[in-house]
Computed example of a mutant assay.
Amino acid sequence: MLLLLAACSSSVGHSSPEGGAGSREGAPTSPGPGWHLSWSDEFDGSALDPGTWTVEDRSTFGDGGKELACLMNRPQNVTLESGVLVLRAQRERTPLRCGAHDSRFPGGRDYSSAFISTKGAKDWMYGRFEIRAKLPTAPGTSQGLWPAFWLRPVTGGTGELDVLEAIGGGAGSPEPGQVHQTIWYDYDGTHPKESAAVTLPKGSPSDGFHVYAVEWEKGAMRWYVDGVKTFERTTQTTTWLDEAFAQPMFLRLNLAVGGTWPGSPDASTRFPADFLVDYVRVYERA
């Protein structure tokens, strides 16, 4: 099931942080009554907390989807700048060896990027999961880029919850300014994925910071962009909802390069490309 929905963006101005993190447009939002903040990372330190985040290093994690980047744990790809997490994709000047057994690119990869998760450290069963982010998907200069914020079960198996995904585009991109909000039962097609393609009518995900959230409760999921509800699934619309998601899940943030969905970068793709995250916050019911 594919739904086309619209969400409003905010235009509240903020000063630009130092260090090249970009303009911070779009005001933070507050959840509705009954939610309390249980955990957050505001990225105000000098480095990611290793007790919370696992950073993929010389990883070919995305090979199942034909992605092209070597995922690296180094300042060139993962850094904090003026209170903002930067996940950076780069075109390498010389091919980058991605481990000793990279069968797809034994001579090295032309791209590097970043992938972090809270697996083994932080997980939740139900809650509101929110980020404030600026995406590297500017139309015309972002072909092959694929940022995402998503959740997966601690034990693997059924259930993937995509708070947001977006793909970039070259000249004449068919979906400028869209983000995708999706749930999967599994990757075998037992049930079709259910997804919304959300267009921001004022600006786009790449023109400034916007707030993306999902509220996950027993029997219901609700997605928001800048405080506006954009998508909803319940056990009435999705009979398998609780079956797939009644288990603890952890967070993932990544910036993929290439793959079967976004396609490969081309000459117009601008590198380095930055997926900027102002914060990650998790709320639970009081």
Rank of each mutant, 00 (worst) to 15 (best):
S206F: 03
K122R: 15
W146Q: 04
A133D: 01
Q143I: 06
G157D: 08
Y224Q: 14
K229P: 10
D207E: 12
P201V: 13
G189F: 03
K218I: 04
Q247N: 07
H210P: 01
W184V: 02
A197I: 06
A220I: 04
V225E: 03
T235V: 15
F245K: 11
G208Y: 04
E175G: 07
K218F: 13
I131N: 02
Y187A: 15
E194I: 12
G189D: 08
G157H: 05
K202E: 15
F245A: 13
E243M: 01
T230M: 08
E165N: 04
D207N: 12
W223D: 08
P153D: 12
Q178H: 13
P176R: 11
L151H: 09
D123L: 02
V198N: 04
M221F: 12
V211K: 02
M221S: 10
R128F: 14
A197H: 10
P147A: 07
V163T: 13
D123Q: 07
W216Y: 13
G144A: 04
K122Y: 08
W184D: 09
L200N: 06
R152Y: 10
H191A: 10
P153L: 05
K202P: 03
T238A: 06
E165D: 12
E215Q: 06
T235C: 14
R222C: 10
I183Y: 06
V198S: 00
G157R: 03
Q178W: 06
E194D: 12
E175Y: 14
Q236D: 15
G227I: 08
G170F: 00
K193L: 15
T234R: 07
S204L: 14
E194K: 09
T155M: 07
P153A: 11
G203V: 13
G227Q: 10
G140Q: 02
